[in-house]
Design a protein around this nucleic acid. Structure first.
Length: 515
RNA sequence: GGCGCUGUAGCUCAAUUGGUUAGAGUACCGGACUGUCGAUCCGGUGGUUGCGGGUUCGAGCCCCGUCAGCGUCGCCA
């Protein structure tokens, strides 16, 4: 190693002031010409990156992401170890439980016709551990769900899973607040004030139409149903009269920027993706009045009223959906998310963490009218809502809490039911009869009878945490060997066919099914 | 399962809205030159335009089907 000669320093390089003097060179190995060069700036198509993942992982961005991931996991492990959590491993080969996502199944050789299921989460095991007296459990757990994928969703993913005894929601939220603050400081070098802000599910749906609102920017939903009831315009009036809602958002200063073509595209978007009937829009003119192709259906007073409650300023664009509560929520949340990203309504490195609490216990099946657990069947209702289990299940709220980072669900947990009576009530509501309950998770019900302590916990999506903290928009960027949207691995070509002998041994035969 | 975007040389892209022999940069191979660091210069190889049909005098371009990657809705307790 030596300094470069006078005038030969290259300031563009980190190593530009030094050079290596070689006395002897031995080639340890040679490379064939690579399909793409890890150091080049133009990224190849993602399928090629996935096929040659060993080359893609050489890229500095990927190296950085994997290092960040390792640091975050280490901080998590250290933090919980310092708080006296015991790391316990739970089985990967388990038993299929009803509800929830589709299971990945593993056939049993010794019990032909029977199958293990890979865990969707260590949920039941960690509750058992509480009964067993490990009052602070933690694990970095691999989870598997056989559902369709998204930019932020993989079929196998990693959770920081924990459970505590003799706690309530406050305890769990408090300990995670501490973790968020510590990781933000040590990984990103920035302060996140705690306690993290909280919002009820009801408020989140009302103000943002989503239970994972992106709070980096405002663009809150405003309900103008009351005004809609008084206008001529059939789309508004009809919806309001039939018990629907008219709600909208204000897009600051974008009236001019949104051409008819762009508005048509937004209309198409809410129709296509959310089943909305249409999108009503108004421009706030320089004189403060509203204009749209449909504005002739409104009186000046009505337009002024709408402009008033929307707090529309000249140059603003107002977007409205007239539909069911659910559709206005999903549609406006979709618009909000899309516009937030398109209009860059937040700094690229901004970080907003908050809690959504007081989720409903149940959701009603639109077709059958039956109830589904919003979280899982072991979630405890709020003590104050216990009576509603019998009288009004829809209004019954759960002791559940989700951690939301930049509009993405980064974790979720609940306080569990620890008494048999309440558990039975919930099973009854969910239509899980005693035989089914006993068959599927009798072991948990058994355990709860042996003096189970009050307990609860949370699971944090590690992949998403890394993605969000690294400012990335795709979960595959933080997973060394991710799968494609069709759950295949382009490098190993998994899943693949197996030797017929293997199938024989497992007593398995594939059949073709006409679709 | 639905909708959408993409698919052209090893790679990244282009091809005047259907028109002659599908181009460029880069990579690769050969040569020249050289205190190099995205070297430079000269020359060269490289294509069933993802695949299969159809329309047309003529298809990279239009139509149908199919495969793959991505995005999204459903789904993900």
């Amino acid at each position: 190693m030596a300094s470069r000669l006078e005038g030969k320093v290259n300031e563009k390089l980190a190593t530009g002031e030094i050079e290596v003097r070689c006395a002897e060179i031995e080639v340890l190995n040679q490379s064939v010409a690579p399909p793409f060069v890890p150091s080049q700036s133009d990224l190849p198509n993602e399928d090629l990156r996935l096929k040659y993942r060993f080359l893609d992982l050489r890229r500095p961005q990927m190296q950085r992401a994997m290092i960040t991931r390792a640091k975050i996991v280490k901080e998590m492990r250290d933090y919980f170890a310092e708080h006296d959590f015991i790391d316990v491993e739970t089985p990967i080969l388990g038993r299929s439980t009803p509800e929830g996502a589709r299971d990945y199944l593993v056939p049993s050789r010794v019990h032909p016709g029977n199958f293990y299921a890979l865990p969707q989460s260590p949920q039941l095991y960690k509750q058992i551990l509480m009964v067993a007296g490990f009052d602070r459990y933690v694990q970095v757990a691999k989870c598997f769900r056989d559902e369709d994928l998204r930019a932020d969703r993989q079929p196998e993913f990693t959770q920081l899973d924990l459970e505590m005894s003799f706690v309530d929601s406050e305890d769990i939220i408090g300990i995670i607040d501490g973790l968020v603050s510590r990781i933000a400081e040590r990984i990103l070098g920035r302060k996140v004030p705690t306690p993290l802000p909280r919002m009820s599910y009801e408020e989140a749906m009302r103000r943002f139409g989503s239970d994972q609102p992106d709070l980096r920017y405002a663009m809150e939903i405003v309900d103008i149903t009351a005004i809609a009831k008084t206008v001529e315009f059939r789309v508004f009036r009809g919806t309001a009269d039939e018990g629907g809602f008219v709600r909208g958002i204000r897009v600051d200063g974008q009236a001019e920027a949104f051409s008819r073509r762009r508005l048509d595209e937004l209309t198409e978007y809410v129709k296509r993706d959310f089943g909305a009937k249409g999108l009503a829009w108004f421009r706030v003119e320089p004189d403060g009045k509203l204009w749209s192709p449909t504005s002739k259906n409104f009186t000046d007073t009505e337009l002024a009223q709408i402009a008033g409650v929307m707090q529309g300023k000249p140059g603003d664009l107002l977007l409205f959906l007239a539909d069911s509560w659910n559709t206005t929520c999903r549609g406006l949340a979709g618009l909000r998310k899309r516009l937030g990203s398109e209009l860059k309504l937040y700094e690229a490195d901004s970080l907003h963490c908050s809690w959504i609490t007081e989720f409903p216990m149940f959701e009603q099946d639109a077709e059958t009218g039956g109830w589904h657990a919003k979280h899982h069947p072991f979630t405890a209702p709020l003590a104050s809502d216990l009576e509603l289990l019998k009288t009004d299940p829809a209004a019954c709220r759960a002791q559940a809490y989700d951690l939301v980072i930049n509009g993405s669900e980064a974790g979720g947990g609940t306080i569990r039911i620890h008494d048999a009576v309440t558990q039975q009530q919930v099973f009854d509501l969910l239509g899980i009869d005693e035989a089914t309950a006993r068959d599927r998770f009798g072991f948990l019900l058994d355990a709860l009878r042996f003096g189970a302590p009050p307990h609860g916990g949370i699971a944090l999506g590690i992949d998403r945490w890394v993605m969000l903290l690294a400012g990335l928009e795709n979960i595959r960027e933080v997973i060394a060997f991710p799968k494609t949207q069709k759950a295949t691995d382009l490098m190993t070509e998994a899943p693949g066919a197996v030797d017929p002998a293997q199938l024989n041994e497992l007593r398995l035969r594939t059949v073709s099914v006409k679709t």
